[in-house]
Write a protein that binds this DNA or RNA. Structure first.
Length: 960
RNA sequence: GCUCGGGUGGUGGAAUAGGUAGACACGCAGGACUUAAAAUCCUGUGGACAGUAAUGUCCGUACGGGUUCGAUUCCCGUCCCGAGCACCA
């Protein structure tokens, strides 16, 4: 057994052997040392354990809706509990949100600060396929580990509200929302989701010709036709109007994962999870009609406090562009077709010299002339063989084929050829374009390559080597548009198009409907069964439809999703849907469920929702900008349309914490030897750079013994040292196991304590900035906490706080700090607060200040940052029950006067003098004061003076 | 290519309604206490030059211009780094 006493004796013995001192003397020194330590040292591990169990047993952070208190909702993006556990980068945002939460509580708010787990997902399933371990089991193990790690950091979550997306009582409401979407359609006139019954009524009276709806229905029909349709036909038509619908679409199919993926789960033709190739494939899939909300998703960005870059990312993703949809008559031999294109540059119509179709476009078959058939088919086949990545990487590789048919330019009347090329995408606009080579770089390159005519439309533009894409200049060669600026010509052209009935003004969005089914096991089952091949919703009373246990998580032998293997996966005699929902399903409304997590009758009760309303502060990474944060906003808007939630936007303010990168260390092995040379001397040798585990390195000094034991290969390693030490090189890289630079928060907690870790993570730099983790600086923060602790004790280790009234100097330190802490937290500058604390402690130490009137408020100020030490000191000062229930100290204006006195008035940047200025001074008094110095001033008026700037002959500015 | 951020000591970073640049911390150097170590505390620390010294002078916020009594901050141009988007018609 390795108890502390044995360790202690072993340590003393080795000291005795090492130093040659008598054993008795060794014990004497050790005793003196440890006694001293026990008495007054800051014992963080005892303190932190004590208060963490206090908080948990007293449910200190439990909150209830209370209409007598103002509410505040602080939310973290809940984690996916991976098998690797947390590294030091994960808690950054959690620490920031916890500081804000604790601050808001001190300010008298009733703060909702919950936590949970985004527990469905691919990694657990992949692990299950490899090992046969059910995802239920590994997920709950991972959650347990996450919880242990989170608890050590002293977060003030209300754990009674914990949710897990894989819990049936939670995903009941994910399924419920899906059913609601199935039962609704989007009315473009009312601009909201409406019950499907209203659509059926409308079909019964007018058919679908008069209805403005978001849909993908291909037919038009009148009321009598509708009534004559069979049930199956009716159901197929309704399906093309539902907000949750099955539709055939080109999907991202990942063969390696055996599932379809959403656009945000794919990057450059490869899956984000696993980096497997993804191909485009037409499939019937469940989809959510997110595109119906495109305009509202865009508009809603105006009223929320998110960073500009994040809003910009969402705007790009939604990709609104305004222009016109125009009809071109196309002749293929004797047949004539009307083909529509979308353009934002209707003004360039006179420069259209050819048209281009996407190879996948439905027009290709109709418009291919018999004599070109062979060539077109060859080309289309060639395009199909290219992967998505190849098509993207070869952007300037021009390919294409002439279709053999000609369109007519409706304005010039000229015949123009129709081409087919991969540079036009089937998925955007109509899959066909009018090409204006003079003013679009892609059209220009194409025209040059195939020697098609180029007509310049802007006076004086140079198109000899490239197109003129800018929307500026005076129009020419453009008939009635000649002489206008481009900005005038665009609306004028659209107007003319509409007048001549050649097309209509249109807005196009890049945002596409979200593909909502995944052919995998570890997700929410769809509450859908198939009757005679028709997708039919389960009644709400059947929810939740629980995920059945499985023995094998592979796809079935016939290529069906894993759920096809489940026994009795039927509703009565009818088969249930075998796909499951994607990862974003469970995370789309979790912030609502936290408001009322135990409600078994509703997603969230009206009362709870009315009280908590929306998330006031949401902290998380930018990686969710185009995924979760779009889907959540969509989901919330849908629920808003149904009157289930009272706010249209779910996240009022959003802060993106930066990434914490790893700081890797290197050692330098001399080639073909087992000798390592220190950084400063490596130029003298031929060396190989090797990553070394950062846990064996301190302040870039290698622990030689630990290094030898790290890997058997290095057992006999020799070192060339500089000044007796081995200095390692370093660089900043992603934090990952393979770079040996992962720092586990548990290790830091054990060594320095959670309070030090929390403060250090904040001290590292601005919250929103990415920065490397560098353990080197942590001693400074730890030293500060020790100093802070010592402030409360005298030299004998006795609590030394007195009730003497503080003097003005001490009050100034305090009130300066109050203002600083308040300003910094409100502006999320948590890093600079730590400096202010350090200065404050140093000043109080110099003054030997032991006064309760100063120290007690100081404890409150520091408690959001270092809650454990604050609780301990708070209770030592005789307060009950918890500093979390204290009130934030009030900043006293009186001491601002003192600050003014201190601020030097500079003269010519060199001479300095101090002037006594009073906050109550008015303009005349200041003028008189300065006139005595024979200088003139300008004064713009105001209430308080902060500083006064003087230069030769005049005062330039008085800052108020 | 387009959009948005950002370039400050050996290091992380302070300071922007223009006003003592480098707070605070790390590291480094020196010192105190100690038989010793640990811990703790104190001093110095952007660069160059001058002086025995206190101190003084000049140069310094990526680079080049501009506005201003005064610019790290505002404006124009250039370079570099990071993030996002990328045949979006």
């Amino acid at each position: 057994m390795d108890n502390p006493l044995k360790k202690y004796i072993r340590f003393a013995t080795s000291l005795h052997l090492f130093s040659g001192l008598p054993l008795t003397k060794v014990f004497y020194y050790l005793c003196a040392f440890t006694n001293d330590r026990n008495k007054m040292e800051y014992n963080f591990s005892d303190i932190e354990q004590k208060w963490q169990s206090f908080w948990s047993s007293h449910k200190t952070f439990k909150v209830e809706a209370d209409s007598s208190l103002p509410k505040f909702y602080v939310l973290d993006m809940f984690p996916y509990p991976s098998g690797a556990g947390l590294h030091v980068g994960h808690p950054l945002g959690y620490i920031a949100s916890d500081i804000y939460t604790r601050y808001k509580r001190l300010k008298g708010y009733n703060v909702l600060h919950p936590m949970g787990y985004d527990a469905f997902g691919l990694p657990a399933e992949q692990y299950a396929i490899q090992t046969g371990q059910p995802p239920q089991k590994t997920t709950s193990q991972n959650i347990k580990r996450y919880r242990e790690q989170l608890d050590k950091l002293g977060f003030s979550y209300d754990w009674d509200r914990e949710i897990r997306t894989c819990d049936p009582s939670y995903y009941k409401w994910t399924q419920w929302a899906f059913l609601k979407m199935f039962h609704h359609w989007y009315d473009m006139e009312l601009d909201k989701a409406c019950p499907i019954e209203t659509l059926i009524d409308a079909f019964n009276t007018h058919g679908n010709t008069r209805i403005k709806a978001a849909h993908n229905c291909k037919e038009e029909f009148g009321a009598s036709e509708w009534k004559a349709f069979s049930d199956k036909e009716k159901e197929d038509i309704l399906m093309s109007y539902r907000i949750a619908y099955i539709g055939e679409t080109t999907v991202n199919w990942c063969a390696a994962l055996g599932t379809v993926l959403a656009n945000d789960e794919v990057r450059e033709g490869f899956s984000i999870r696993g980096d497997y190739p993804v191909v485009q494939k037409k499939m019937k899939q469940w989809q959510l009609r997110v595109s119906a909300y495109a305009e509202r998703l865009l508009k809603g960005l105006e009223d929320i406090t998110w960073s500009d870059s994040l809003k910009e990312m969402q705007r790009n993703w939604i990709g609104k562009s305004e222009g016109a949809q125009m009809e071109f008559m196309v002749k293929n031999g004797s047949e004539t077709f009307s083909m529509s294109v979308f353009t934002t540059r209707a003004d360039t119509i006179f420069g259209v010299t050819f048209m281009v179709l996407a190879p996948e476009s439905e027009w290709v078959n109709l418009l291919t002339a018999p004599e070109q058939k062979e060539e077109v088919e060859k080309y289309v086949a060639y395009v199909k063989t290219k992967t998505e990545r190849e098509r993207m990487s070869q952007t300037h590789h021009v390919t294409g084929v002439f279709s053999g048919s000609y369109a007519t330019n409706p304005f010039t009347g000229k015949e123009i050829p129709v081409w087919i090329s991969e540079y036009v995408m089937a998925g955007y606009g109509t899959g066909a374009i009018m090409a204006v080579p003079a003013h679009d770089s892609r059209d220009y390159i194409f025209a040059r390559h195939f020697k098609l005519p180029i007509i310049p439309l802007i006076e004086g533009c140079d198109i000899s080597s490239e197109s003129f894409d800018a929307k500026e200049g005076i129009m020419c060669n453009s008939g009635f548009l000649d002489g206008m600026t481009v900005q005038e010509a665009i609306p004028a052209a659209i107007e003319e198009v509409e007048k001549r009935k050649l097309g209509v003004r249109t807005t196009n969005y890049r945002l596409r409907d979200a593909i909502f089914s995944r052919q995998r096991y570890w997700g929410e089952p769809f509450p859908i069964y198939y009757r005679d091949g028709m997708a039919t919703p389960l009644p709400e009373s059947q929810l939740p439809l629980e995920l059945p246990p499985l023995d094998s998580f592979h796809p079935s032998s016939s290529g069906e999703p894993p759920l096809a293997n489940a026994k009795n996966w039927t509703y009565g005699e009818y088969p249930l849907e075998t796909s499951t929902m994607p990862g974003f399903a469970g995370s789309s409304a979790y912030y609502l469920r936290y408001m009322d997590p135990h409600n078994s009758r509703e997603l969230v009760s009206r009362d709870s929702n009315n009280y908590w309303q929306d998330v006031d502060l949401y902290i998380g990474g930018t990686e969710h900008a185009t995924g979760h944060l779009i889907y959540s906003r969509f989901w919330n808007k849908f629920l808003f349309d149904l009157g289930i939630v009272c706010k249209e936007e779910p996240f009022r303010k959003l802060v993106n914490q930066g990434m914490i990168q790893g700081r890797s260390n290197f050692v330098y092995r001399i080639k073909n030897t087992n000798t390592f040379v220190s950084l400063g001397l490596k130029e003298n040798y031929k060396t190989t750079e090797l990553h070394v585990d950062v846990n064996l390195v301190e302040n870039d000094r290698l622990n030689l013994e630990a290094f030898r034991q790290w890997n058997p290969e290095y057992k006999d390693a020799r070192f060339i040292l500089e000044n007796g030490e081995y200095i390692c090189g370093w660089t900043v890289e992603k934090m990952s196991k393979s770079m040996f630079n992962v720092v586990n928060p548990d290790v830091i907690c054990q060594r320095y304590g959670a309070d030090t870790l929390r403060m250090y993570e904040m001290f590292l730099g601005p919250l929103e900035q990415s920065k490397p983790w560098d353990t080197n600086g942590i001693d400074g923060v730890h030293r500060f906490l020790k100093k802070f602790w010592r402030l409360f004790f005298d030299k004998n280790g006795e609590l030394a706080v007195t009730n003497n009234p503080p003097v003005e100097k001490e009050l100034k330190i305090l009130h300066n700090l109050i203002r600083k802490v308040e300003d910094d937290i409100e502006s999320f500058s948590f890093n600079t607060t730590i400096s202010a604390f350090m200065i404050g402690v140093n000043q109080l130490t110099d003054l030997d200040c032991h006064k309760r009137g100063i120290l007690e408020p100081f404890v409150i100020l520091i408690s959001p940052y270092a809650p454990h030490i604050a609780e301990e000191l708070w209770s030592l000062l005789g307060n009950k029950p918890s500093v979390a229930n204290a009130a934030f100290p009030v900043f006293n204006q009186e001491f601002i006067k003192e600050l003014i006195f201190e601020y030097p008035v500079s003269f010519n940047g060199k001479l300095r003098f101090k002037k006594t200025l009073d906050i109550n001074m008015n303009k005349d008094e200041i003028e008189r004061l300065v006139r005595e110095d024979e200088r003139t001033i300008k004064y713009s008026g105001g209430e308080k003076i902060r500083k006064i700037i003087v230069v030769p002959e005049k005062i330039i500015n008085i800052v108020i």
